[in-house]
Design a protein around this nucleic acid. Structure first.
Lengths: 344, 344
DNA sequence: CTGTTAGCGCATTCAG
DNA sequence: CTGAATGCGCTAACAG
C-alpha cells in the first residue's frame, strides 16, 4: 500500500460533501439516510463526493437533531463463559436487523453496580433498556421510569415488573428438576450452590430445591454453599468433595449451574467414582459443554439466545409503535425443559 | 412501591436544572462534569435540583459540543464461548477506569462483515478503535486512516500494521507446541482444524504446524479440516474419528483450539481409548475448561484478558497524550506459554 | 424532488 | 468562581 498522506486530518462534514456535489446539506442527509427520495442523478453525484472525500456520517450529531440515538442499552452480570453471552448475542442479532447499536454494561455479579451502570448508560440516551433480573434499587427504578423509554427485565419473573418481562421462574425450574429426579427414584438429595447472597437467581434456585423436597418430606438440608458468582468448575470439584464427605449416602447432587456440575463430574472421574452409578449429577443451563462431555449431564434447558432476541424484539416494537402503552406490558414466560441425560 | 405518575414525560434539560438551582447552565455543566471549580454552596444547590428533577446528563449533546464522545470501538469475531470474551472483558475493564464506553461489534467470523462494522462504528465517532487480526480490506484501511484516531490490531502480528499492535504469532505458537511434543518423543502427528479459509488465525496455526514438522522431516500431511468457525466440541469429536480411521498409527493430535481438543478427548472416553496412553491430545488457548477436565489438556496459553486490557491501555494513552505520534507506534508482542499437562 | 431556516442540548471561549 | 454568547454537525419542518 502506498504511503498515506497525513493531510486531510481536518474533519470532513456534510457541508463539504454538499459543496463537492453541488447540492444542499439536506439533500446529502436524505441521500445518506437511505430515504429513497433523492433523484438517481443527484444520488450518484453525492455518492461520488462521499467516496472522494472519504466522508462518514456523524451519527452523534444526527441523533441530537433527530432525538433518536439508535442505541439500546443492556445490563448483564457477565459475558465470560456464561449463559448471558448467548443472551447478549441474541440481543445484538435482533438489534442489528433494526439498525440499532447495543450498549452493553456488566455488573460482574455485583448487584450494587447496576445503579451506576444504569445512570451512565442513560446518559447516552438509549431508546430502550434491558436489565437482568427483577431486583433493583429504588433509585434505579426511579431512573428507569424517568427515562420514559421501553424497559425489559429478563431472566426472571419479577413480582413487580417495571414494564416488560422475558424470563422464567428459576425456583420453578429446579422444582421440576427435583420432581423428575424423584420420579426416577432418587431419594437422597444434595445441593451445590454459591455462597453469594447477591446472586438472587441462585437463591431462587435453592428455594425451589428446598420447596420441592419438603413436598416429598425428604431431607432438604444437605446444601453446600461454596464460591462466589460466577461459579465455575473448581467450585463444583471442591463442593462435591465436601458434600460426599459429609453425606456419603447421597445418591444425587443438584448443582446451581452446569459449570459446577461439570466440575463435580470431573472430580468423580479423578476419584474413580462412577457417574451415575455411584453418584448422579444434574446441572442447570444446558451449556454446550454438558451435552458434549462424558457422561452427558442431565440439566435444565432455557433458551438463552431466545431470551435476548425476544427482549430486543419487544424494545424494537415499542420504539416503532411509539405508543405510551402503559397497558400493553408484555410478560413473556419462557419455557423450561428438563433434559434427562447420562449423568442421572 | 406507590403508583408512578406519568406526568413529567417531557425531557428535562440542563436549563431546567439551572433555573431550579438559580444558576446558569454553564455552572450546572461544570458541576456535573466533576470539575471542582464550583463553590460548595452552589454545588449542593445544583445537586438538590438534579435529584428533585431526576435529571440525567445528556452525553450525546455534550459530546457534539466537546468533540469527545467517550466511545471506543472494538471488533471481535464472536463473544460466545471463545477466548475473545476474555479479551472483551479486558477492554471493558480498562476503558471503565478512564470513563470510556465500549462499542462492540461482532463479525461472527465473517471477514467480510468487518468493513461494514467499521463504517457503522465510525459513525459513532469513537475516540479509538480496536480490531482483531491483521487482514483488512483496502476500504477498511482507508476508513481507519481517515478517521484519524488511534487504531490497535490485536491477536496477531500483522506484517503491515496500521498503527499499534498487541498480539502474538499464531504460527510460532504452534511451532513451539510441536517442538515440545517432539522433545517428549512424539513422532506421528496429526492436525485437527477448521475448513474455513476466512479464519486467518486458524490458517496461520496450520502453517506453523506444518513448518515445524518439515523441519523434523516428519509427515505433515495428516490434516483433518472439519467445521466452520467457531469450531467446537462436535467438530473435535467428528474430527478425531476421521483422523484415527485414516491414520491409526497417529500418536498425538494437535487441535486448533481447546474446544476441539476437548471434543476429541470426550470421543476417546466414549470409545474406551486411553488418553494419553493410546493417543495424546493437545489444544490451543488455555480455556478454563482444559485445566479442569480429566485428563487435563496440554495447551498453549495466551493472555486473552491481557491482550484486551493492553490494547485498551494504548488507546487511552493515545487519547490523553493527543500526540499525532506517527512515529510512536507500539508493537506489543504477547508471551506464549506451552502448558504440558496430562493429555500428552 | 430539493432548498431554507431553525434548533437539538450541551461545552468552549471569553469576559467579568 | 460564574455568566453570556456562540456553535458543534446534523435533521425536522416547512416551503417551493
Amino acid at each position: 500500500m502506498a504511503f498515506m498522506s497525513t493531510d486531510n486530518l481536518k474533519k470532513i462534514t456534510m457541508a463539504d460533501v454538499a459543496r463537492e456535489a453541488g447540492v444542499s446539506t439536506m439533500t446529502v442527509s436524505r441521500a445518506l439516510n437511505k430515504a429513497n427520495v433523492v433523484s438517481a442523478a443527484t444520488l450518484s453525484k453525492i455518492q461520488k463526493a462521499v467516496d472522494d472525500l472519504g466522508y462518514v456520517l456523524d451519527q452523534s450529531a444526527g441523533s441530537l437533531s433527530s432525538r433518536k440515538t439508535g442505541f439500546v442499552a443492556a445490563i448483564i452480570p457477565s459475558i465470560n463463559n456464561s449463559n448471558f453471552s448467548e443472551t447478549a448475542h441474541g440481543i445484538t442479532k435482533e438489534l442489528e436487523k433494526n439498525g440499532l447499536q447495543l450498549l452493553l454494561g456488566y455488573t460482574d455479579y455485583m448487584q450494587e453496580r447496576e445503579e451506576e451502570l444504569v445512570e451512565s448508560l442513560l446518559r447516552r440516551r438509549p431508546e430502550g433498556i434491558i436489565v437482568t433480573g427483577g431486583y433493583h434499587t429504588d433509585k434505579t427504578r426511579r431512573m428507569l421510569h424517568a427515562a420514559a423509554i421501553p424497559v425489559v427485565e429478563m431472566w426472571d419473573l419479577p413480582k413487580q415488573p417495571i414494564q416488560h418481562v422475558v424470563g422464567f421462574s428459576n425456583s420453578r425450574a429446579i422444582e421440576k428438576l427435583v420432581e423428575h429426579l424423584y420420579k426416577e427414584g432418587y431419594r437422597s438429595f444434595c445441593y451445590l450452590g454459591g455462597d453469594d447472597a447477591d446472586d438472587t437467581r441462585g437463591q431462587d434456585r435453592l428455594h425451589g430445591y428446598q420447596n420441592q423436597l419438603k413436598k416429598y418430606g425428604l431431607n432438604h438440608e444437605r446444601v453446600v454453599e461454596i464460591g462466589q458468582t460466577p461459579l465455575s468448575y473448581e467450585d463444583g470439584s471442591r463442593g462435591i468433595k465436601i458434600a460426599l464427605e459429609k453425606w456419603p449416602q447421597t445418591d444425587v447432587i443438584v448443582c446451581v449451574s452446569d459449570l459446577m456440575a461439570f466440575g463435580a463430574l470431573v472430580e468423580c472421574q479423578r476419584s474413580g467414582w462412577n457417574v451415575p452409578r455411584d453418584i448422579a449429577i444434574a446441572g442447570f443451563g444446558d451449556y454446550e459443554l454438558s451435552r458434549n462431555c462424558y457422561p452427558e449431564i442431565t440439566t435444565i434447558n432455557v433458551d438463552c439466545f431466545g431470551i435476548g432476541s425476544q427482549a430486543a424484539q419487544i424494545i424494537c416494537q415499542q420504539i416503532q409503535s411509539h405508543s405510551e402503552s402503559e397497558f400493553s406490558n408484555k410478560i413473556i414466560k419462557q419455557p423450561i425443559h428438563i433434559l434427562p441425560r447420562e449423568s442421572t
